[in-house]
């Protein structure tokens, strides 16, 4: 059996691949492996955002619950993605609901451990916030593209 350290697992994840090893070691100290069964809720809108998840395998449906209609899925996060931005900013409350679309293996990183360290080490904090900003930009761009409705009837031809 091959035993890998948490730092090695982080290094294998797309999001953390490029960060310096000393920061990765520090992040590993705030991380743990988690598994979610299909349909299991990973985070709940309005509750305390205690950290974020780096998805290793599986698919997470992100959306908002609408009364009598259930979860309205707005986007899917895949292996290699991170899930959760709310841990970074007050009031540290989840803005979304997330449910495992299939069996999900992820690394959970805890804000209580991370935030004090990042406050004290601005270089590492700046780097991590930049990485999250890039993820947010990609999410916003994805949303823009869908608002454009590129597959809509007014914008494509008949082929």
């Amino acid at each position: 059996m091959v035993v890998t350290t948490m730092a090695e697992e982080l290094a294998a994840h797309r999001f953390f691949r490029t960060i310096p090893s000393d920061l990765r070691e520090r992040l590993a100290g705030c991380a743990r492996n988690v598994v979610f069964a299909p349909g299991e809720r990973i985070c709940v809108e309005g509750t305390h955002a205690s950290g974020f998840f780096a998805i290793r395998t599986g698919r997470v449906n992100v959306g908002i619950y609408v009364p009598h209609q259930g979860l309205q899925v707005l986007e899917t996060r895949h292996a290699g993605d991170v899930l959760g931005f709310s841990w970074l900013f007050p009031p540290y409350r989840w803005q979304i609901d997330a449910v495992a679309g299939e069996r999900v293996r992820a690394i959970e990183l805890h804000a209580d451990c991370l935030l004090p360290y990042l406050e004290e080490h601005p270089a590492g904090g700046y780097l991590l916030v930049r990485m999250f900003a890039q993820e947010m930009e990609e999410t916003i761009q994805s949303t823009r593209l869908r608002l454009l409705d590129v597959y809509g009837r007014d914008r494509v031809h008949a082929r």
């Binding site: 698919r59 449906n61 899925v73 707005l74 986007e75 899917t76 895949h78 994805s142 593209l145 869908r146």
Partner: peptide, 8 residues
């Protein structure tokens, strides 16, 4: 299935 743009 998945929801998002194809690059997802």
């Amino acid at each position: 299935g998945s929801v998002g743009v194809v690059t997802g």
